[in-house]
Structure formats: structure tokens, C-alpha cells
Design a protein around this nucleic acid. Structure first.
Lengths: 346, 346
DNA sequence: TCGGCAATTGGAAGCGCTTCCATGGAAGCG
DNA sequence: CGCTTCCATGGAAGCGCTTCCAATTGCCGA
């Protein structure tokens, strides 16, 4: 067992060239004759040689390591599709690009949360940082990372983070608008809205879009009531009574994510309501849970995995110098209303 | 921005000792006077020095990298709590132990799946491998990894994998037995069982336990019908008709995991059944989905996050030589039946 | 008093790779 | 035809750390 792996020198020796030449071939460098290149590649093959990434990064000063940071607490939200899908997308893109991601969970309320993130850069030598909400709008954190020479990409920044670093996301405001329009079309006029955690600016933009649609229809403050949850199923369950017993009992309930919508749905079942006859409910994200609950949830789809993938691609483009755009770029992906069975005419 | 980080030599210079001594202090080596140790630590503090893990692993020959491999396809099972919880547990243990995990998804049917896994060892220099089902029973893979000098830990091995490497898991057979006993106690006598994917031996042990409980009660082959799904919600939905329309219409349906149980539940709703009055349903795992569906699912809890954590701990114990036990060790954790609202008297 | 041994420290040699700079020859120029 | 320029290659110097081995000191028992 454990027979020592071949090194670059073994390849050099076998192919009869100098070590540097092998290095050039391996890194796609210029100025190598095709014949030599082929000879080296053949030696690589026959020895089953693989570069040692540790040695490479020591010598080259590039760790090829990215960090993905998320805030949601997996003990409270063990189901969080959003974060795991982002991670998966990032992982896949990395596989293709030859990078590695270190995944780190830093709860939002951690006192030394900035330090925890920045340590990832200093301790692990991460060269790129992917920030998901609410960190995507944490300007101080973004700037501190940038100061350390680390490239940053934000996922779903809600405003402040937008100009500070490259970003990816959907148009959350439009998503909120679209789902509200759908409900208005079905004749609903009294609404409830369950918002997400404070500081998650992109989620708040969903509320703004929702409000815009209502205003457009001549509705106003008196026609809807807003509660704030924390994105968990539990908070949906807990918030439901307040909305359902409200003097202005809404006929439609818009939730800032699917888990909270599932919570409301569960609470509605528990009190014997018939969904959607007695109440229309909508979510946001189109997480798997949306299809699993009964009845299946009407929601706004966003391509979360692709978001994670694009985040990595943007980062790597900056790292390799493929993108030298002085301004930050924001890549906006499409969202779509997915009508399932929790919505019906008022 | 990007000011060069201090190296071990900077620390050595500042504390007036040789580089080796700093290395000793950093690695908790013996034979260093307390006074010197303190002086070095102080220099480390004041310079905010962090060891360069790349350099360390190059010099020391230890990458401190582990690999976690899972098979479930996140495009079909985007919700798979099992894998993400394992990962999370592993991640946490690593944080505490100073290791890193590389997460890799290798679908079970990939033609070069062994190569994909082994490449992780050779290419990334992973020193330890965590194998989740069905790879935990893939003896050829385990032995190939061992041959490469990589330590291996299996999660929920079902038999063949047991003696080949250290492992963690619950007693799946007993879990199946326990849930069946619960149903028998409630008076059920006609059963359906939805098994998981072929090759997932630990999941099959749940069926064996189920069968043992029935036999104990004098029931036999004629009293239950078995179907095989693929652990997804979708497969639960698809399999439901076959079970529900069976001449021997079961009064209780035992599923090998929660997602399939949720699928059956959804299908039952769709055909207007009242659960649990018309049919008792049980899952396995106690994933978040179990609490989210309506009505909440009776299931068998297993501490998946802890499983991930223990897997890393076992691995690290082997790697550091803390565990030199010549035989493989298997760490069995407790499971528990969680009675919720999908089960009732027959 | 002296060899012997443990405790403490440092010197030197790499780990496997990339980067910088030098070399020799072919090609291009007026 | 003598010059610069470009191309293809190699030599040497580290990247920041650990490991091996040697050196120094102090203390023991005989």
C-alpha cells in the first residue's frame, strides 16, 4: 500500500526535458513545441502523474481555494434548500474549474462573525469569497475581505452590496410584484405578507414588489398586514394565528420563502381550514418542499443552483484576470411564477 | 491592500528563537520550556500569524484533507436531508479538529465512479474517506482506497462494508423492527413496505427488522407486500397506487425513508384518503420533511448529523494514530421511534 | 570528579512546485 | 551581413513549513 506518488521530476526525467518545461505543459504555458508537449503528456499518462496542489500553491502563491459563507443556522433550519443548493452549484462549477470550496456556516448573530469569515481568508488562504444573504449586504465585511486582497461575489445582494462587489441574483422586487399580480388577477383584495429576517435585504425587496403591485391596483396600507418571520417552517406555524385571526382576515397570504409558507399551510390544516378554498398561500424560491406539501405550493421559482454556479464563475474570472472590468458586474437570472394548488380565485 | 502575511521566520525572529522551535510550539511538541513557549505564543499573537496549511502539508506530508462521498443525485433528490446533514456534521467536527472536507457527489451509476472517488485521493491528496450508502458496502472501492494508503470510514454499512473499515451507524434492523412493533401494537395486520434502492444494504436491513417483527407475531409472506422505490418523494408518489389498489389493501405502510413516505402521503391526499384514519404511514430518518408534511409523520429518528461528526472523529483518530486498534471499530448510535400523526389504531 | 543521559535548542535538508533570468539558436531587419 | 528580436528550453532560487540529526546544557549516580 501507499506507494509514493510520482513527482514532476519523474515526469521530466521520463520525457527527457527539464522540470520547468513539464510545468509549462501542465499549465498550458506558451513556447513549447507540440512534439515536446506531446512527449510530456505521454509521460504524465504513463506515470499517472497528478500535480500536488499543495506544492503548486506554495510555489505559485495561489491556493485555488474559495470560501462559501452562509448564515442560516442548520439546527433551526435543517432543511434549508437555499443554502445547500447554492453550495451544490458552487461545488459543481469548482469541479469544472479546478478550484475548491470551503463551506462555512457563520450564524448571523455570532459576535465575531466578521472575524470568523476573514479568518477563512487568512488562515486557509482562500482567494475568493462567496457571500449569501444577509452577508451579501454587509458592506463592512465585503470591504474588509477586499482589503485582504480577496475577491468577493455576493449572492442576491439587496442594495448596499450591489456596487461593492460582483454579484448574482434574480430580480426579487419583480418576483414579489409578479406573485402579487397573480393573486390580484385571481380577485384577491385582502392580503397578508410574511416577511423574512431583518437584514435580508433581497427578501425585503419581495415585499416592495408586492406593495408596488397593490398600489398599482389602487390598494394601500389598509389592505394588507405584514408580519416578520425568520424563514423557518416553525416561524410560519407561529405567525399563522396572528394573520388568520386578524380583523382584516386576508384571503391570500404571500410568504417570503417556501418554508414559512409550508408552516402557514400546516397551521391552516391544524385549524381545519381548506386550502386553497379558505385561503390562498404562496411561497418563494420553489424549494423541493413546495412540491412536497399538500396541496403543492404556488411559488416563485428561482434557479438557486445556477446562482451558486455563476457566483463561482464570476469569482474565477476575476481571479484569473479573465474579467478586468473596473466596475462591478451583476448577473441577473430569470425567475418565474409557478402556479400549483395553494392558490385559487378569491 | 494585500499586505504579505507573516511567516514562521518572522515569528522566530521576533521571539528570538529558531524556526524549529516555533514549529514545535505550534504543533504542541514536547521539550520546549514554558517560558519560551509563552514568548513564541506572544509573538504569534502580536503578528497575527497563521500557519500556511499548504506549506505545512508539503513539508509534513499530511494534507489534513478528508473526502466525503455521496451517491444520491441532488437533481432528483434536491432535498436529501440525509446527505446534507452528514456533511454538516462532518464539517463541524473538522472545524474543531483542524481538518478540511472535500465534498463530492458521485452518482451510483457513474461508469467510472470508483475512479472518481480514488482520484480525490490521488489528485487532492485526501488522507481520509467517508463513504455513505451505498458506497459504504462497496468492498472493492473500500479496498482500493485502503490500498492507496487512505483511511476509510463507512456510514451505515449494511454488512459487507462492516469488517473492512471503521464505521458508524444506527441499528437499522432494530429500527425496522421497532416501527413494525409499534404498528402491530396498534392492531395492524396487513402491511405494505416501500424499500429503497437496491444496493443500499443498510436500508434493506430495515425491511429485515420489519419482517422479523411480523414473524414474531405469527404473520408471514401473505400479510405484507413490498415495493422498491429510490428514496425520492417522487418514487413514493409513483408507488402509492400499486400499494393502495392491492387486493390485500394494507392498513399500514412502512417506508424505508421519510421522503418516500411523504410521497405516499401526498398521493393519498390526492385520492382523497384521510390519513391516518384510512391508512397509517411511517417513514425513517426523521428528516425535517417529517415534521413539515400534513399530518406530521411518524418515523424512526436517527442522529444523522452526529453520524457525520463521529465519522470524522473516527477517521482523525486513525490518522493521528490515536486509534491503533487492529480490528475495525463500529460505532453504533441510538435510534428512536417518533410517534406523530400518521399512525393510528387499525 | 566524570561518563552518561535526558531535556532543550538549532542547523540543514528537503517536500514538489513555480517564477525569474539566462542561454542558444532561428528568424527578421535595413 | 551584422544586428536585434523572438522562440524554446533549462538552471537556480525559493515558497513556508517539518523532519532528521547534531549540539549544548544541566543533572544524575558511582
Amino acid at each position: 500500500m501507499k506507494t509514493k506518488r510520482p513527482t514532476i521530476d519523474d515526469v521530466a526525467r521520463l520525457s527527457g526535458v527539464a522540470r520547468v518545461t513539464v510545468s509549462r505543459v501542465l499549465n498550458g504555458g506558451p513556447n513549447v513545441r507540440d512534439e515536446v508537449r506531446a512527449r510530456v503528456m505521454q509521460a504524465v499518462e504513463s506515470l499517472d502523474y497528478k500535480v500536488n496542489p499543495q506544492a503548486r500553491s506554495l510555489a505559485g502563491g495561489a491556493s485555488r481555494l474559495l470560501a462559501f459563507v452562509f448564515a442560516s443556522d442548520p439546527d433551526n433550519e435543517p432543511n434549508s434548500y437555499y443554502e445547500s443548493a447554492l453550495e451544490l452549484g458552487a461545488l459543481r462549477a469548482c469541479l469544472a474549474l479546478g478550484y475548491q470550496v470551503l463551506v462555512q456556516n457563520v450564524p448571523q448573530r455570532t459576535p465575531d462573525r466578521h472575524k470568523r469569515v476573514l479568518d477563512l481568508i487568512t488562515t486557509q488562504r482562500c482567494e475568493g469569497l462567496i457571500l449569501s444573504p444577509p452577508y451579501s449586504d454587509d458592506v463592512a465585511l465585503i470591504e474588509a475581505a477586499l482589503d485582504l486582497g480577496c475577491k468577493v461575489v455576493t449572492v442576491s445582494p439587496g442594495g448596499p452590496g450591489l456596487g461593492k462587489a460582483d454579484g448574482v441574483g434574480v430580480d426579487d422586487e419583480a418576483g414579489g410584484y409578479d406573485i402579487a399580480r397573480e393573486l390580484l388577477r385571481l380577485g384577491h383584495r385582502r392580503f397578508g405578507f410574511i416577511a423574512g429576517l431583518e437584514g435580508h435585504l433581497s427578501a425585503d425587496r419581495r415585499l416592495e414588489g408586492f406593495q408596488r403591485a397593490l398600489i398599482e391596483q389602487g390598494l394601500g396600507e389598509g389592505d394588507y398586514v405584514v408580519s416578520r418571520g425568520d424563514f423557518t417552517f416553525r416561524s410560519g406555524v407561529d405567525l399563522a394565528p396572528r394573520l388568520l385571526d386578524h380583523p382584516l382576515r386576508p384571503t391570500a397570504l404571500v410568504c417570503a420563502n417556501d418554508d414559512m409558507a409550508a408552516g402557514v399551510l400546516s397551521a391552516a390544516h391544524a385549524r381545519g381550514l381548506n386550502i386553497p378554498r379558505d385561503l390562498s398561500i404562496t411561497g418563494f424560491d420553489d424549494a423541493p418542499v413546495a412540491a412536497i406539501v399538500w396541496p403543492p405550493l404556488t411559488t416563485v421559482h428561482q434557479p438557486v443552483k445556477v446562482l451558486g454556479q455563476r457566483a463561482v464563475e464570476l469569482l474565477v474570472a476575476r481571479l484569473t484576470g479573465a474579467n478586468t472590468e473596473p466596475k462591478t458586474v451583476f448577473q441577473q437570472l430569470d425567475h418565474a411564477v409557478v402556479s400549483r394548488q395553494t392558490t385559487t380565485a378569491a
